[in-house]
Design a protein around this nucleic acid. Sequence first.
DNA 1: AATTCTTGTGAAGAAAAATTATCACTTTTC
DNA 2: GAAAAGTGATAATTTTTCTTCACAAGAATT
Lengths: 213, 213
Amino acid sequence: MTKILVVDDDQDLRENLVEVLSDADFSPDSAGDGHEAIEKLASDKFDLVLLDSIMPGMGGMETLPLIKRKYPKTKVIMLTAFSTVDGAVEAMRKGADDYITKPFKINDLLVTVRRCLEEAKFVACGEMLNMDDTFKCLANSTRRKTLSLLKEHDKLRFMDITRKLDINDHTKVNFHLKILKDAALLEQDGRKYYQLSAKGNKIIECLGTITSC
Amino acid sequence: MTKILVVDDDQDLRENLVEVLSDADFSPDSAGDGHEAIEKLASDKFDLVLLDSIMPGMGGMETLPLIKRKYPKTKVIMLTAFSTVDGAVEAMRKGADDYITKPFKINDLLVTVRRCLEEAKFVACGEMLNMDDTFKCLANSTRRKTLSLLKEHDKLRFMDITRKLDINDHTKVNFHLKILKDAALLEQDGRKYYQLSAKGNKIIECLGTITSC
DNA sequence: AATTCTTGTGAAGAAAAATTATCACTTTTC
DNA sequence: GAAAAGTGATAATTTTTCTTCACAAGAATT
């Protein structure tokens, strides 16, 4: 059952939303401010949070980055009464997955909620890919260098890679290229040029972030 | 030199922005619509794109996802005359890094541009140096599980980890914990509780991103 | 107070996996 | 036809992981 946490200081709205979400076959819970939301999230796993941006105590704008840091997979939709473009942009920059202004039609909210969850599902299925191979691949510096070479020069041939890596034994490079290919981090086009796959590209992106800490 | 591409159908604004950006020590170029922008991006590497959302031909909203798919590292700031919350949210969802409504003060634009570029610099700076231990660490699924356990429950004791991993031989867990400690991904407090180090925390965050591609 | 159980740590050798070196071969290019 | 590019398989080597034993500190039990 998909669990949704409703965070709003307006008790009426909260109860109303909980009821609507229940009717829509979700499993909702609610919190009255940011602190309570953090507590609920710590004790229970939620798929999505509906977060009011302005609340007494800890508001949604402060809570949002905390939630996203600790539970990046949990989707967050911001709700707000006073809608400004700046506010919306700020919320999205802080990691909100969507943004809805009050008053809203229940149906619009449900549409947004479902869309968010669909995206989550899409992401989750990618997780099925065995990450083990991916990480095993990345454990080797020759292979990491190969990936970053291919990031820089979009396409390279076998011997180009060998020379750029400054490795005299070309069969050794071949060995590593095969492993990279098996992990689907790179692929070959018709002319035997090696290039990063979509997955390889993403990985390389993430590598940048990791490497800079 | 930081290269910026200004994409707007209004020639006056375009020339104006190019001049301002030049004065601010950037290296600007410009395009009159989405197609032209794509062409310029293909032939030249840009660090940032200022993209008008509404243009004859191909508008910014269509161009944005194309740019972001092909050049994920290139920052994109959307510019738009008719500002609606929905429009801003849509742009951010499509991968814009920021959003500015016209008319804007030149200074505000420069502030936004510089902030975007700072973030880019942070991501880009890392070369793959002495990350070897870190990646070797992550290559093992037991260790990855350990890290994510510690992400969930902030602190854990040795035997807690052993049981949660469902491993009967505790010395095996000890072996992996030592490796994690050596790689500075986790640390122990005075009461022998294991917890993620700052580095470990960052890695775990990245892990989330990697896992979802 | 002695002992038993649980927790926690370390280390050496065995087993498994990853990496390298070597050889053998095909295809492409000049 | 010779040189270079490219691929694959196998044995040797190195690294990683697992197993087993050994030991110490603290809590709980007798």
